[in-house]
């Protein structure tokens, strides 16, 4: 192979991967503060979530990463004492603006939780519920096609196609989590938020979900909270490090895990914290 010392290999394998800076910003937080009653949980966070990228939010327990994630689809609205200040936008539009329909927002910004939480209904119902209430399917055939497409998107179709009427709760943990992902993508969201989606799964189920996340990235913008450093390193392109409610730093994942700028990040990811 021809090697040019200045340019790397002729086929470009040795040249740097294009920086993720090129991806447009999908969701943007400016000076975000979150309070639970008198207690402040998040301090002046400025964080961009870029389109068709996986952004990982890491940090020790109680650092505010899940709280921040939940601000992005206004899940925190359900907690009475919770107050959010600052500006969070999606495609430049303030998602906390009074004119915003929260239900519609949550259809655009879907969420997958730590513990798989299928509805106590059939597999089919689990996936079709969202499209039905949002009026996304005009006919039964439409709905069936949408369910299949979503289950395929979540890599679950082949495993459940013959038992769509069986309860979703009868699936294994990993399958349930993929069912929840199928449910989330059934309403064609633009952003998917994942709050420790693999922490209740075994390594194989985790690998399947991680593979799925990588595929979903082609069409969706993803933000994921994870306690597994390796998972953040594996699945994300950008990593944001939180500590005590502050955003310590955000950078390309590659840089964060080989040469982070901040000492707190360094100490946390290498297992030196407190």
């Amino acid at each position: 192979m021809k090697v040019d010392t200045q340019q790397g290999f002729a086929d470009g394998t040795a040249t740097a991967v294009a920086g993720s800076n090129e991806f447009p910003v999908k969701m943007d937080g400016k000076n975000v503060n979150v309070f639970y009653g008198d207690k402040q949980a998040i301090f002046d966070v400025n964080l961009e979530i870029r389109e068709r990228q996986v952004t990982a939010l890491i940090g020790p327990s109680g650092c505010g990463k899940s709280t921040y994630l939940r601000c992005l689809n206004r899940m925190n609205d359900t907690i009475e004492s919770c107050r959010v200040t600052g500006l969070i936008t999606m495609d430049g539009e303030d998602i906390y603006d009074p004119s915003i329909d929260v239900v519609e927002l949550r259809a655009r910004v879907g969420m997958v939780f730590q513990k798989p939480n299928p509805f106590p209904k059939s597999i089919f119902e689990n996936v079709s519920y969202g499209p039905r209430i949002h009026g996304l399917a005009r006919s039964k055939a439409d709905l069936e096609a949408l369910v299949e497409q979503s289950l395929r998107g979540a890599g679950l179709w082949d495993e459940v196609k013959d038992r769509l009427q069986e309860p979703g709760t009868g699936l294994s943990g990993g399958q349930q989590q993929r069912l929840c992902i199928a449910r989330a993508i059934a309403v064609s969201p633009e952003v998917i938020l994942m709050d420790e989606p693999c922490s209740a799964l075994d390594p194989i189920a985790t690998a399947i979900v991680e593979e799925l996340i990588d595929e979903l990235r082609q069409n969706y913008t993803i933000a994921i909270v994870t306690h597994s450093m390796q998972q953040a390193a594996r699945v994300s392109q950008r990593t944001a490090m939180f500590h005590l409610g502050e955003l310590v730093e955000v950078d390309d994942t590659e840089t964060m895990f080989t040469n982070p700028s901040e000492k707190r990040t360094q100490d946390y990811i290498t297992g030196r914290f407190g």
């Binding site: 040469n259 990811i269 290498t270």
Partner: peptide
């Protein structure tokens, strides 16, 4: 065993 990262990895 440890999957070292950052300065440890280096």
């Amino acid at each position: 065993q440890r999957q070292p990262v950052a300065s440890d990895l280096r």
